[in-house]
Design a protein around this nucleic acid. Sequence first.
DNA 1: AACTCATATTTTGCATGCAAAATCAATAAA
DNA 2: TTTATTGATTTTGCATGCAAAATATGAGTT
Lengths: 216, 216
Amino acid sequence: MSEKTGGPSMTERLEAALVEEIATGQIAPGERLDESVLAQRFGMSRTPVREALNRLVAQGILVPGEKRGVRVAEYTHEELAQIFEAMHEIEAVCAQLAAKRLSLLSRARIETAQAGCLAAAEQGDIPAYLRANEALHMAIYDATENPFIKQMATEFRRRTGPFRAKKFRTKADLIASAQSHMPLIEKIFSTDSHGADAIMRSHMTESFLQVLAANG
Amino acid sequence: MSEKTGGPSMTERLEAALVEEIATGQIAPGERLDESVLAQRFGMSRTPVREALNRLVAQGILVPGEKRGVRVAEYTHEELAQIFEAMHEIEAVCAQLAAKRLSLLSRARIETAQAGCLAAAEQGDIPAYLRANEALHMAIYDATENPFIKQMATEFRRRTGPFRAKKFRTKADLIASAQSHMPLIEKIFSTDSHGADAIMRSHMTESFLQVLAANG
DNA sequence: AACTCATATTTTGCATGCAAAATCAATAAA
DNA sequence: TTTATTGATTTTGCATGCAAAATATGAGTT
């Protein structure tokens, strides 16, 4: 009786495809997206393409081009600093709330995700690490028990995705990253919300500098 | 030679109109929005209506209806608590950053806005107070010097608009609200970021309870 | 009255077409 | 060589139409 009505529409499929391609860098920041080209490439008319592009613009993943069309959001160094600051501030809030509200379930999810990070790092498997890292962050966002804050954090994560991805080049990068999670997780597990917030903040500058280095 | 090309499109006009009508409560939370009806009402075809609705859905102002169409976002008490928590957390971040970075210009803007609040409150002019209050918040968001954080805060403000509006019924409400800004502004002006954050937080529960009371 | 099942109606998602606006290209003038 | 100007071309924004999905309606059955 209660089947989730309706399969994915063309609009939704395109939207998902674009999010994916942008996140993985297949479509680079600054690149222009042409309605008709996309329509042809995905075998649909311009109408659903437009809808998908509109949604992505609303999410800040795409921006209206200076002259025409839309392009993948691209930031100056200053803007990059600002967007990372915003993301880190939200993540600090998340860490704080997670520590304050930690449930057994949340704790288990965070532990599992962190184990996944360590495993992927040990194997030097970058794509696996990216996924595991993502899962860890989501687990922390979930632990806030606030879906609105989670959504906000997730959106910023999407927007910064293309830039963060470049940070990870070697196995050493992965291991360093996975290790750096530990103090934060410990603070969350000991329900030290102030400490969790402080640690998150202390990582901000460092983390941003790495991003900047990786993105010229 | 650098005129901002292009006037507002039909899509943009409808979007703005709907944001306005929803913010002021003319269209109530839960109400269903029909494409064809809107198209007729605003003298345009369904295409631009759809685009506008899509954007508003992406902003969380509208949500996809259970059966069909879209409706104005409506929240349970629990969700209301969550969304206000999210907004307040962001505002706390804003207050902190504003205090940390306060420029002369920002200070002047905040002062002007607060003067406007007091004036409107004295006169018991509710619409004017709402506008002035909005301006004050925007001035504080601007003072963060971070457009991304400002945008995020603004979006939450929009989403909570319909619920906050009901808080103000009498002149006394306005005066109380305007007065309650003072300690926060003082902390910001004395660049006491920790204090600003603390004050913002201390207002959270109180503010939310008022909203809840006003919204059944 | 409650439950099917079939049929009518509404609503959606998408394709297509077109006119206006914006951009580009090419030529002419300074 | 730069600067205007004009015309060609692309791109956009929107209207319209239609088929399929979703929903409401209603008759017939238990």
